[in-house]
């Protein structure tokens, strides 16, 4: 299992559009992907779970991936956060 901690950069936080992007990307990997915010853990492949985190800009998020493609998954998901989900 691999994990990384990132800070949400984009202005809207994990709103519907970024959440949808994140879920789609996570789902493309075989690994289990988990997000943790304030000790609340959710499945990154569940749009409901991601939305319910209600994570805003500046929130610290731990990303965990576990599986054969965990390295690639973590790298790409981290990149998505870094790019601010393509906002602006």
């Amino acid at each position: 299992m691999k994990e990384e901690t990132i800070i949400i950069k984009n202005e809207l936080g994990l709103h519907a559009r970024p959440a949808a992007m994140l879920v789609k990307l996570s789902t493309s990997f075989d690994s289990e992907v988990e997000l943790e915010v304030n000790e609340i853990k959710v499945n990154a492949k569940s749009i409901m779970g991601v939305l319910m985190l209600g994570a805003n800009q500046g929130t610290e998020v731990i990303i965990r991936a576990n599986g054969d493609d965990e390295e690639q998954a973590l790298k790409e998901i981290k990149q998505l956060f870094e790019d601010g989900f393509g906002e602006k």
């Binding site: 519907a16 499945n43 409901m48 779970g49």
Partner: peptide, 16 residues
């Protein structure tokens, strides 16, 4: 159209 993307993901939600 993006909102419909989120809509379709609700239908794939493993939790649900």
């Amino acid at each position: 159209a993006f909102i419909f993307e989120a809509h379709s993901l609700i239908l794939e939600d493993p939790k649900i």
